[in-house]
Amino acid sequence: MKIGRIAAAGLFLALLTSLLPVGAQLASASETLVACPDGTEATDFQPGLTFVPQPTTVHVDGTLGSCVSTSNPAINNATFTINGSGTASCLTASFNSTMVVHWNSGANSVIRYNLTVNIKPAGETVFVSEGEVVSGQFAGAQVVRTTVEATLDALKCLTVQGVMTASGPTALVIVG
Score class of each variant (00 low, 15 high):
M1S: 15
K2T: 13
G4T: 13
R5T: 15
I6H: 05
A7M: 09
A8K: 03
A8E: 00
A9S: 15
G10C: 12
L13V: 12
L16P: 02
L16N: 07
L19N: 08
L19F: 14
L19Q: 07
P21F: 07
P21C: 07
V22R: 11
G23H: 04
A24W: 13
L26E: 05
L26S: 05
L33S: 04
L33H: 00
V34C: 01
V34R: 02
D38Q: 10
G39R: 01
G39P: 02
T43C: 07
T43Y: 03
F45V: 09
Q46M: 13
V52R: 14
P53Q: 13
H59D: 09
H59M: 03
V60T: 06
D61W: 05
S66D: 10
C67P: 03
T70Q: 14
T70W: 10
N72G: 10
P73S: 06
P73Q: 08
P73R: 11
A74K: 11
I75P: 01
I75N: 00
N76L: 05
N77K: 13
T81Y: 12
T87M: 07
A88C: 11
S89E: 02
S89F: 03
T92Q: 02
S97A: 14
S97K: 13
S97Y: 08
V100N: 07
W103M: 11
W103P: 00
N104A: 08
S105L: 06
G106C: 08
A107W: 04
N108G: 10
N108V: 14
V110P: 01
V110Y: 09
I111D: 00
R112I: 12
Y113R: 06
T116I: 08
K120L: 14
G123R: 12
E124M: 10
E124Y: 13
V128T: 00
S129P: 01
S129K: 04
E130G: 09
S135K: 02
A139Y: 12
G140F: 01
A141D: 02
Q142T: 15
Q142N: 15
V144R: 03
R145V: 10
A150R: 00
T151K: 00
L152R: 03
D153E: 14
K156S: 02
K156R: 09
C157M: 10
C157L: 04
T159C: 07
V160E: 05
Q161G: 09
S167A: 14
G168A: 05
P169M: 00
T170N: 15
T170L: 14
A171M: 09
L172E: 01
I174G: 01
G176I: 08
